[in-house]
Simulated scan of single mutants.
Amino acid sequence: MKRYDVIVVGAGISGLLAALTLSKHGKKVLVLEKRRNLGGNCNSYMVDGYQVDTGAHAITHLIEGPLKRLMDNYFDFLPVFEDYGHYYIRTENAFVKVPSNLKDFVTFDVLPRKDRLLLSQILTKAFTLSSFGIDLSNQSVYDFLPKNLSKDTYDFVDTISAFLSGRSMKETSAQRVLSGSSFVRDSITQEQFDAMIGRLEPKKSQSTESILASILPYHLHASLQARMTKVTQPFTSLERLATNNINYSQGYPRKGLKALLDAILYSLPETVEIKNECEVKSILVQDGKVSGVEADEIYSSDLVIYTGFATELPRLIKDLPEEYKANLGGIVHSKSLTIWLGLEKEFPNFNYTGSEIWFKDFAYWATPISNYDHSLAPKDKQHIGFYFVNDENKSDEHE
């Protein structure tokens, strides 16, 4: 029976980053992936000369977010990110930037003036509550809205909610909109990271538990939360509301999503073993503690990191607490559809970098990715991805 310090189930972006982080601290890691291809939703494929990503993406929080921190500390090769550009709203008569601060929002004439003023008040209220440490995760976006807005305004908010969470505004938390819009920091800075874990010392092996504790979000680790209270943040939520520039910390990787995956794979040390087309049948537990996994054979480890759908855990682990299984039953998976169009020529309507949103009937989000890198499409042609959130009340065939 082969033994490892850590077994990671799933070779998507989360699993590979977990393997990279732990292996750089001297851990022997096994990664098991049931599919042939690695990377999950962070990959690209060639189709008739066009490079197709697994979904339309914007890489966010590149100034001080979790990916930036991991790249700075653990990557041997850094991907190049092009400035993402702007988010736009397209209507029958207009093509304008999505507002990222109060000043822009007040002049956002796609929506009625009265609605813009009401929404500005609601935004200010939400950011004020957030700046005082009030968690808005249990309050929906819809709960914050006045009930006398126009249909266009409700459709606009509903579409933004859907693209941030995959759910309607009635099912999207206000906190998700704040963090997704870069107004509220959802990570820790490099200075905070250094204070907790210290600069990487390859010859020094830390305990796996201390490594995991140091990279978890603050609300998942009490000692980390205590440390964060001592750090003065350079901007409050209200300051971000007045000055925020959404695209400032977002990018698209040159050469497509596969460039990010390749950078991770290149950085993995020899202490990481990856087995694809190797599905995990069960996570083994002995005397209340994890002892390994059963896949094509049994692999032993005191720590298993599972990165798949949480709703699959009852199938993989026997005798989970009933309350925990009941909580898992409340998780809802959202479905989306991405359609890639390879255009025979470059269209003036798509002569921009960034994304556009159509928020009326059949809402979509579109990104002309070949504008970032012309090599993603054949010469003088254009490559655009259209992203739709599927209606859960309709069949996949209908969508």
Rank of each mutant, 00 (worst) to 15 (best):
R3M: 01
I7W: 02
V9C: 06
G12D: 03
G15V: 03
L17D: 02
A18T: 05
A19M: 07
A19R: 06
T21I: 11
H25I: 00
L30Q: 08
K34L: 01
R36Q: 14
R36V: 01
V47D: 10
Y50T: 07
Y50M: 07
D53S: 10
A56R: 01
A58Y: 00
H61E: 14
L70I: 06
N73V: 00
F81Y: 15
Y84V: 09
H86F: 10
A94F: 03
S100K: 05
N101Y: 08
L102Q: 13
L102D: 09
R113C: 09
L117F: 15
T124N: 15
K125V: 14
K125Y: 15
L129S: 14
Y142Q: 15
F144N: 15
L145D: 06
I160D: 10
S161I: 00
S161V: 01
M169K: 11
T172Y: 05
S182Y: 07
R185A: 08
I188P: 00
F193G: 02
Q206P: 11
I211T: 01
L220N: 14
S223W: 03
S223A: 11
R227S: 07
V231Y: 14
T232H: 09
Q233K: 11
T243Q: 11
P253W: 01
G256V: 00
I264S: 04
I264E: 07
I274K: 12
N276E: 12
N276Q: 13
K281D: 08
I283C: 09
Q286M: 10
S291H: 08
G292M: 03
S301M: 06
T307W: 05
P314I: 02
I317N: 09
G329D: 04
G329S: 07
S334P: 09
S334H: 13
I339A: 14
F350N: 13
N351R: 11
Y352R: 04
T353C: 12
I357S: 03
K360E: 12
Y364I: 04
T367Q: 13
I369C: 09
Y372I: 04
D373T: 03
Q382V: 02
V389W: 01
N390L: 15
N390W: 08
S395Q: 07
